[in-house]
Write a protein that binds this DNA or RNA. Structure first.
Lengths: 343, 343
DNA sequence: TTGTATAATGTAATGCATTACATTCAAGCA
DNA sequence: TGCTTGAATGTAATGCATTACATTATACAA
């Protein structure tokens, strides 16, 4: 591989001039710039990034930590992230933590050695110590998206989870449902707590009682939706929910399978609302009513935020993006033998 | 950040000794090794990878190029890849090409500058020139998985596509289907051509005619399955297929939606087979019969293969893994008014 | 014309780990 | 005891781009 020296030789100037022609073109004569450009083309030079990184103490690499690459929810966020990053000359290193603490540690360790410049966290399922220690000690550029730590104030991009949940419940209530259950994500997760809060407050606002057995915990995956769905649908009919709000589309789809198995029709006997609006939600049977998050935009915002942090700009502590309830075919008016609608 | 010098100082030896204690412990006294170890702990040293990479001309980074991160088919392959890589001290840089040529180019450019040591291609949708040029000129470590270029012999991990397709068709035929159609992936893709070959040869073996309108091209996504499905299902009844073999599960699910829209029952009126066995295929309605690929193992094999290439080991040119037909609820015996089964 | 300010370019130090080569030291042998 | 040999360690060059500082060239003013 040719080095900057070869270019300098070919352009008949010093390496410093070549470097400047590349990094600060305005500091160099028009003529020199051209000479350097053609020399670079001639020798086929491209800078050795290891050397550059060593010198500049930066890597132009951003680590994005997520709980599970396989989850389609993240794919569009990643696309948004990457687009912004690439435009700005940054590379994205995707880190799948798979609920495995060691992995996260390894990715955090990239920062102090200049192998990465910053981190975007799409998961809160990592040891809090990693974050506090790093953020305090070495002031690591760190941005969160979707999730957050309630103990900490980090720059964060997110949606209004309580509101989104409340809207979903409000819609179900407007359809005449009174027995509304919810299958949550992992409850150590603040966003799930928020959604449950939104659920409860809206239930209260609608004067609907909440049976404690109507709030069950899943893990966002198909299977947990299926299993928890079985439990909910096996309740005696006066207690069994006529509508269920799920914290993910995958769980909603698992739930709908449980309903089929139990010969409970969706939406005639049971209304289902999901969360995320993944591609699949339009193709499942019935098509899923769901809360849509602006995933691409979440990714973009998070990356922009992190780049601003890196550039020492002032950044907002919170960026809240709006959600939208997408009504499809999995929700319908409450079944006839339901209690009369509120006076 | 402390450097190797600080360690040398603390351990009262030279930097060379510290380096050796880390890289070739056997070249150093037991005593020194311990001294160095505790010095490292004391000063909190971790090596600057940029400097190491610069010196060693390697990056311990593997680029994995895929057509679309959002496709759940890849997620498990990635998990397998990453697991092997991390175990061996390598990092994985995921590159989403999004059918965009420029991206691929950019990732290939990482190699000559030692920003990456090798590439695993999970897509053939990149300019062939990139591969030939690189592979010829600088002998770039390159391994393919799933897909391949038929013009080139690169180390490749894959399944027997013609066989897998033939098995699917054979199964449909055994159920009495005679009008069997197929929705393919992009036909510039050798694996799709292979699957069509397998389809055709098995149809021939079963003495079943192939109507040219039964072979239609999709792009692996939900929507294309839906659209091509509409076309196939709109055919006059004597021509309309009673079974359709899709090159991806997403297309199969799109197709099933088209069937619902047209009030065609699956599997009673129409049998559907997918390909890949993505998580969803168990949760759609009806559950999807599909060809399962050992995705995790494909990922592992590909990474092992690449690491072998990097270590200049002799590697096999082809590694063929086996598939399995998973029979679920989307396939059933051909509808009654079908032509009599073959004499 | 000489001096000064400014732009353009060059020189050389720097970042950090690795490693070829040089040196030291101790063990083993005659 | 003196010499050989090999292990252990040290010295210093190396990889490559960047940049502080030094030097030269150019333009303009006095």
């Amino acid at each position: 591989m040719p080095t900057i020296k070869d270019v300098a030789l070919a352009a008949d100037c010093s390496t410093a001039t070549v470097s400047r022609a590349l990094a600060n073109p305005e500091k160099v004569t028009e003529a020199t710039r051209k000479r350097v450009a053609s020399a670079i083309a001639k020798v086929g030079y491209s800078p050795n990034l290891a050397a550059r990184n060593l010198r500049r103490s930066e890597s132009r690499t951003i680590v994005v930590l997520l709980p599970d690459i396989a989850n389609p929810f993240f794919s569009e966020i990643i696309a948004g992230l990457e687009d912004v990053a690439h435009r700005e000359g940054y590379r994205v290193l995707l880190g799948d933590c798979e609920h495995d603490t060691g992995r996260a540690q390894a990715y955090f360790d990239l920062l102090p050695t200049n192998q990465a410049d910053g981190i975007i966290l799409l998961t809160a399922e990592i040891p809090l110590a990693l974050v506090t220690q790093q953020a305090r000690g070495s002031q690591i550029p760190l941005v969160m998206a979707c999730e957050y730590f309630d103990q900490l104030t980090l720059p964060t991009v997110r949606i209004d989870n309580p509101l989104a949940a409340a809207r979903a419940v409000e819609y179900l209530s407007s359809l005449g449902h009174r027995r509304i259950a919810t299958i949550t994500g992992p409850m150590q997760n603040p966003i799930c707590i928020d959604r449950v809060k939104g659920y409860r407050s809206e239930m209260a606002r609608q004067n609907l009682p909440v049976n404690s057995r109507w709030v069950v915990e899943g893990d966002f995956g198909f299977l947990s939706g299926y299993q928890q769905g079985q439990g909910l649908l096996a309740m005696p009919s006066e207690e069994r929910p006529s509508a269920i709000f799920c914290h993910s589309d995958e769980m909603a789809i698992g739930l709908m399978k449980a309903a089929r198995d139990a010969s409970i029709r969706v939406p005639e006997d049971l209304s289902v609302i999901g969360f995320d609006n993944i591609g699949l939600s339009e193709y499942c049977q019935p098509e899923l009513t769901t809360v849509s998050q602006p995933r691409d935009e979440i990714g973009r915002c998070a990356m922009r935020l992190l780049l601003d942090v890196l550039r020492k700009k002032q950044v907002p502590h919170q960026q809240v993006l709006s959600t939208q309830l997408i009504v499809r075919a999995s929700t319908a008016p409450a079944p006839a033998p339901a209690p009369a609608p509120r006076a």
